[in-house]
Amino acid sequence: MTVGSPAALPPLAAQAERLIELGVHELAGISADDVRAFAENLGDESSGALLAVHPDRAPASAIAPLLRHGGKPGFIVTDMPDVDRFEPCGVDLPDAPLYLVTGLDRGDGMANWSPEEALPALGEEGRTPLLLTEGIHWVLQQPAALERNHCFMTIGSRLRKENGAFDSRTPALWISNGTGRDGRERRNAPKVGWCWWANRHTWLGFASTAGRKI
């Protein structure tokens, strides 16, 4: 697998301040002091990790509008009103409001793979796919992680239907072209959308992590 990731993430202390600046801590019901303390207690040993808020505390619908690209706010496609029902699948999350995501990889080397093909390949590499909320946190901290022709899917989040089967939609983050229902005013805006489980897209990789910890 070819690693596809931008430059190193900011230090954890800077990431904590970014979340506080955006008001994510308030959305999650966590004090600013607790966010700062979490980052401070981990120190330099977690350099390069992403500070994430548990999706139960800060769901995708709440944090996606905080994204920015080209000065435009993020949005969720209109045909994904159930975005917060996409839950962790095959992913063990720490039982804590704040946690770290380590060894991020945008998955550029898997561009033009389908989610159906990418998931087992990630497992063979000892990696797990990012959740949608983790992908959003990544772009909040490092906007350069999302760029045209190098966007990514977050197939760690899946929606299970009432009959027990998985919904064929799989979430992704990319940059809007301002066409169709997006509207021209949203051209170049960061977008939470979805793609079919068995479809391939040349401009979408598969974001993954080496692990999660607190």
Rank of each mutant, 00 (worst) to 15 (best):
R148I: 05
V3Y: 13
E162H: 06
V192Y: 06
E87P: 00
A28C: 06
L50Q: 01
W203H: 15
A32W: 08
E116M: 03
R184C: 07
F86H: 01
S47L: 10
D56K: 12
E185H: 13
R212D: 13
G43W: 00
D95W: 07
A49N: 10
L66D: 03
E185W: 15
A144N: 10
D182I: 09
W203Y: 15
E40T: 13
R18V: 07
L104E: 12
P65Q: 03
F75V: 01
P11D: 11
G193W: 02
I136E: 06
T179D: 15
E124F: 06
L131P: 03
A64I: 08
E185M: 13
I20D: 09
G103N: 07
P171E: 04
K213L: 15
G71Q: 07
P120S: 11
P143I: 04
L140S: 02
G74Y: 12
A58R: 03
Q15F: 04
S46E: 14
D56M: 11
D33P: 02
S31W: 09
G70Y: 09
R160G: 12
P190H: 10
F86S: 03
S46I: 05
M1Y: 08
G126P: 11
L173R: 02
I30A: 04
A207Y: 12
W194R: 00
R160T: 14
W203K: 11
P73M: 10
G123Q: 14
D44L: 05
E116Y: 09
L146D: 00
A49Y: 10
I30F: 08
T209M: 03
V24E: 05
G156R: 00
T154K: 05
L204F: 01
N199V: 05
E147D: 14
M110N: 10
L122W: 03
D82S: 09
A64R: 07
K213Y: 13
Y99R: 02
E117L: 08
N199P: 04
L204Q: 01
N163E: 11
K161D: 15
P171C: 06
L173N: 02
S114F: 07
E45G: 12
A210E: 13
C89F: 02
G178M: 08
T202S: 15
L131Y: 01
L173C: 04
R158F: 00
A64Y: 10
D33M: 05
P11R: 07
P190I: 09
E134P: 00
N41P: 05
E21K: 03
A121G: 02
R57K: 14
D34N: 12
A111P: 09
A198V: 11
A172M: 08
W113A: 10
R85L: 13
A165Q: 12
L100A: 07
L19I: 03
P143E: 03
K213C: 12
I175N: 01
T2K: 14
L27T: 07
F206H: 00
R212A: 13
L140Y: 09
A121L: 09
F75K: 02
P6A: 14
T209V: 06
L19M: 09
G156T: 00
D167I: 02
F152E: 01
A7S: 13
H201W: 06
K191H: 14
D44K: 06
V139N: 01
H54M: 06
L159E: 10
P94S: 03
T154Y: 08
S157L: 02
W113F: 15
S5P: 04
P11N: 08
A8T: 15
L50F: 08
T2Q: 12
T78A: 14
R127D: 04
A13F: 00
G205E: 09
A8E: 14
A58D: 08
P6H: 11
G180M: 07
